[in-house]
Design a protein around this nucleic acid. Structure first.
Length: 414
RNA sequence: GGGUCACUGGCAGAGUGGUCGAUUGCACCGGUCUUGAAAACCGGCGAGGGUUAUACCUCCCAAGGUUCAAAUCCUUGGUGGCCCGCCA
């Protein structure tokens, strides 16, 4: 959630920044006026409330002194009717503002490049050189089936399309990767957590998935719980509604979870293979920092994910997302794209974002500094998406006969 | 799942209809004293909104309700303890 006061204080600049994220001038105008309506509704309500409190105190005093309270009661009763009306007005104004602001994306950092879509993303650097092959490299689904690692058909039988079954060496590799990633992150100072994979609505509002992206989430109807789309949700919300000591920051966390996404709107894309599944494994990094620390921690997280790929010997590149490709809550994002020889292209395998105080404002994550409560900055990044890492290992380390060489770094985990 | 008791500021714990946003202790912060520290003493110390700053409004698990007035009474929900039942 953005800070409405920014619109109040600095309308032009804030409006321009929001328009970079395709928020219409109309919506911005509605937001501003909704806020003004709420402010004036509050003022009238609170003024009358103050008067009512005053009269109520008098009531007690009169009783004590044995004075008649008849006249007082008439006045108080009359006020009460108006008060209820004003309260209703205020509540409506609150709801109206909420309905708008909860759907407004974060303001991008000023140095984030403008652009419509991924075409305008800016490559920062490439790491490791893509391998060359004396044969035509295959795509991962072919390799996966040939090696008996993944069974796409039986996954569909158990659930529906975009579910798969991993078995044998594939299953062991998956488990090895998770352990390798967690250990790697822990050595970089990220504390390991194991968290619920079902969360309530409040948590999802805290990190910004709700109310706007309800269609992307699996929901357990009768329990009012949702399957998490990423560990970012439980990890970030661990500190929801808390005031931390600034000396406790930064808090750096890592955790492995399954992730569940409906992939609504991605129909037809990546239907084959395990690039885009409804359920996938991911090791996540989340940090809660002071406002001053977040840029440095962001760089640490990008480096952590990139070094992890390097440790596995996977060629990749780092890309700064342009405004059009930036997620809802992110002020800036660097994507890590791994080289896939079978597809002859780089594909996203990690995404590291700084949301600044966007999530913290909604989730009420603050820290105390010199007696003041300050909104924290929250950051998240994958390190890494396990399924996509397996895809990358298969395609990069495939041999002519279709067998796959497991990276040395993983040997001790198998 | 059933019963029962509870839920108050970082923690402990008073407060059972009015002057209570809340006694007190611990913790924490500042000061005096001390070479320094401890102890002792003095002062400060919950959160959100609002204001240049005050005022002022809201919050005693949550949402409703009763009342001129609710931390306090009622209803529903949540969470926790204990007892019973069931189950990896």
């Amino acid at each position: 959630m953005i800070d409405v006061k920014l619109l109040q204080k600095n309308f032009d600049e804030t409006a321009r920044a929001l328009m970079r994220k395709k928020v219409s001038a109309e919506t911005i105008g509605e937001l501003k006026s909704a806020n003004e309506i709420l402010k004036s509704a509050k003022l009238s309500y609170e003024t009358l409330q103050a008067k009512q409190n005053e009269l109520s105190k008098l009531f007690g005093q009169y009783k004590k002194e044995g004075k008649s309270t008849d006249d007082l009661k008439i006045e108080v009763d009359a006020n009460k009717i108006t008060l209820n009306e004003l309260l209703e007005t205020q509540r409506n104004a609150e709801e109206a503002l909420d309905a708008i602001i909860m759907r407004i994306p974060n303001i991008p950092d000023t140095d984030v490049p403008d652009g419509e879509d991924e075409e305008s993303n800016v490559e920062l650097r490439k790491v490791l050189t893509p391998p060359t092959f004396s044969f035509t490299p295959k795509e991962h689904w072919e390799l996966a089936e040939q090696n008996g690692w993944i069974d796409f058909e039986r996954g569909v039988k158990l659930a529906k399309s975009r579910f798969s079954v991993v078995s044998g060496m594939g299953a062991r590799l998956e488990r090895a990767l998770i352990n390798f990633m967690l250990d790697f992150n822990r050595e970089r100072g990220f504390q390991e957590f194991s968290v619920p994979m079902l969360v309530n609505r409040h948590a999802l509002e805290g990190t910004g998935q709700l109310p706007k992206f309800e269609d992307d989430l699996f929901k357990v109807e009768e329990e009012e719980l949702y399957l998490i789309p990423t560990a970012e949700v439980p990890l970030t919300n661990l500190y929801q509604d808390e005031i931390l000591a600034s000396t406790d920051l930064p808090i750096k966390m890592t955790g492995y979870t399954s992730c569940f996404r409906k992939e609504a709107g991605s129909g037809g894309r990546d239907v084959r293979g395990m690039i885009r599944q409804h359920q996938f494994h991911k090791v996540e990094l989340v940090a809660i920092t002071t406002q001053e620390q977040s840029d440095a921690v962001f760089d640490e997280m990008v480096a952590c994910a990139s070094d992890l790929l390097s440790a596995l010997g996977l060629p990749h590149r780092l890309v700064t997302l342009c405004t059009g490709d930036l997620g809802f809550g992110a002020a800036r994002t660097v994507d890590l794209e791994v080289w896939l020889p079978g597809q002859n292209t780089y594909r996203e395998i990690s995404s590291v974002s700084n949301t600044r105080d966007f999530q913290a404002r909604r989730a009420k994550i603050r820290y105390k500094e010199e007696g003041k409560n300050i909104l924290a900055h929250t950051l998240n990044g994958s390190s890494l998406a396990v399924g996509r890492t397996m895809v990358a290992i298969m395609e990069n380390f495939q041999q002519e006969d279709g067998s796959i060489v497991i990276p040395a770094a993983l040997q001790k985990y198998l």
